[in-house]
Design a protein around this nucleic acid. Structure first.
Lengths: 198, 198
DNA sequence: GGTTTTAGGTACACGACTGTATCTAAAACT
DNA sequence: AGTTTTAGATACAGTCGTGTACCTAAAACC
């Protein structure tokens, strides 16, 4: 800092640290997440990190909790199919963000401890109204267009599960065509609206 | 080795190394997999490992390829539902083996490169006839009990996807009741046999 | 303006893992 | 029995991450 020596502090510094942590986690996987790498990426000395957190996992959880909340689906009134596809699109976009990849890697970590995952779900997802297609399905059930009895935990998870698996298999975005296939061939039949029927 | 000094060689040694590699990967996650840890667990000097592999990832892929193949579902003739549930049960059991957890962690690794995953699929899964429920569904389609046109990539993946997601969410075995729910509420409706219909 | 807080910048000893390089002795082959 | 192969047991320098400590100077507070 030879000339423009401004010193970050408080929120500005925290934001830089959080961004660095999430970016590092997405690149390295939380298993390889280190204080050192976060500090380097945030261009701050490690001592600053150790003053607040004792371990990179704690830091990452704070970082994820602090992030802007995920964009929510905003279902309309009479396009269930389109709204479901849009919800899955939102999910894909989120999943390929740094935060999404960090969360994925935490959840799939064989060394994960239940406390970490619980903390993650409570702090990161509790604020949200549920999963992506869940929001849409509940909305249409409230408007009497879906039998609420159909919305079991299994059914509410179909879309997210298929998207997740496809991303794991391919390592890439499933693509809109595949999202449509998920809606037409799995979700709609499960709520009793099989497009193949009349 | 003071007294019973027998020296492993060839297959016996390889088996010990492979077992150690898979066990390490399952415990540590492939991201944290090190030559050192494998060598210690296999009680062999690192030099022995470096003579054959240059990197723990290569070693792990060989180890996974060498493993006993996964148990296959053996569908009967007239119990589609039961056979699907049994296939998902097989999948859960495999997923919680060392090999299953190692594979899961490889696939979910944000730092995975496509070549590794391709190699994994070719070498580990190519020998098998496909995924777990896939085997069952194809069997019943061949016997004329399912419309083959229904067996799209999405539909063939529903069971595995829901099991995978549930395991990631819970970090534990989904339990037989949940497997039944998957079959009844997701797979069967998707192939046009919705139990909720007449 | 003086004081308190806290980021920036180093340094250090420790441990883990890496590749490589020996040397030895047990298996395997002839 | 003699030879070849290769596992076992070190050792070593190099790199990376850890925690901790210490000093300095910029922000923030009064």
């Amino acid at each position: 800092m030879a000339e423009g020596q401004t010193r970050r502090r408080g929120k500005a510094l925290l934001d830089a640290i959080y961004a660095a942590a999430v970016a590092e986690a997405a690149v390295a996987g939380p298993g390889r997440l280190t204080m050192d790498a976060i500090a380097k990426r945030a261009a701050t000395p490690r001592s600053t990190l150790y003053r607040r957190w004792s371990d990179p996992r704690d830091l990452l959880l704070d970082a994820l909790a602090d992030l802007h909340p995920v964009e929510q689906p905003h279902p309309g009134a009479d396009d269930l199919r389109g709204d479901l596809i849009a919800a899955l699109r939102l999910m894909c976009d989120w999943a390929f963000s740094d935060a999404g990849r960090a969360v994925m890697a935490i959840v799939a970590d064989p060394r994960r401890d239940p406390a970490t995952v619980d903390a993650l779900f409570e702090r990161v997802f509790a604020a949200r109204g549920g999963t992506f297609t869940q929001t849409v399905l509940r909305h249409y059930a409230e408007h009497g267009q879906i039998d609420p009895a159909r919305l079991t935990p299994v059914v509410l998870d179909i879309g997210e599960a298929l998207v997740t698996k496809r991303m794991m298999d391919l390592g890439a975005d499933p693509g809109d065509q595949y999202l449509e296939a998920i809606v037409d061939q799995a979700i709609l039949p499960a709520i009793g609206r099989d497009p193949a029927d009349g």
